[in-house]
Design a protein around this nucleic acid. Structure first.
Lengths: 125, 125
DNA sequence: GTGTATGCAAAGCTTTTGCATAGGT
DNA sequence: ACCTATGCAAAAGCTTTGCATACAC
């Protein structure tokens, strides 16, 4: 049986407050605002549990490493800005299913776009 | 000036012989067929150099970790089979550029598809 | 001969695990 | 009271780095 610990509740809060994919270090940092004693091992263990429970999804970001984000959001993908070095959620799905050879059984997909985000593009102009 | 060492030539050979993304461990293993004494640190150093030189491209695979593949091949993406746990190169590009919000400046993209590859699908049938 | 690249070992990261204890049920 | 989850520290991966020597030029 899974217990409702203050640590896991804190970690869930972190994801509810920040609507973008986050790494372990960020979760730990923000989580300590709720539970000062929060330990890194606890974060790792809970992220794993939350992924198992289907509450979080694990992403492999090409330059930021492993990130986690809430499940249950509308289908979307990610954009990484090379200027501010952050990952954003992109609404919609630019995947054209018909362009995949039909011998492959596609069950899931992950798309990362790279470039410059709207707010960094403004500054560079 | 960059020197043409037998180790780097061996590593290049490995990529010429295997046309799929490979991890450090695989490069080391196959590379030792050419240079028995090949060291892991040398592999890491040369993979880095080859990426700098634009001869290799680094990929972040969601479950296999960091992989490397030759550049200069036609534009393509990757498929990961959950049965045989290997990454394949998929010809073509299923990205629909028009489906990306236009405020974002897209410079590059990475797509991973997950599922079952043709040969594993046959066995499971 | 000069200086970069290698092999080895040590050190840095990130992530996992063992163990005693705190705390949820 | 029971037994899972936590905190701490050690350990296990993966990757980088320092240093003496080998070897490409």
């Amino acid at each position: 049986m899974r217990r409702k610990t203050t640590q896991r509740i804190a970690i869930e809060q972190v994801f509810k407050q920040h609507e973008r994919p986050m790494g372990v270090d960020e979760v730990l940092e923000y989580g300590r605002d709720f539970v000062e004693s929060l330990n890194q091992a606890t974060v790792y263990r809970n992220l794993k549990l939350l992924v198992e429970d289907g509450w979080l999804k694990r992403l492999s970001h090409p330059s930021l490493g492993t990130l986690y984000e809430r499940t249950g959001r509308p289908h979307h993908h990610h954009f990484h800005c090379r200027v501010c070095n952050r990952a954003f959620e992109l609404p919609g799905c630019p995947l054209n299913e018909n362009a995949v050879p039909e011998e492959y059984i596609v069950e899931d997909h992950e798309i990362f776009l790279f470039g410059v985000c709207p707010s960094c593009a403004k500054v560079t102009e």
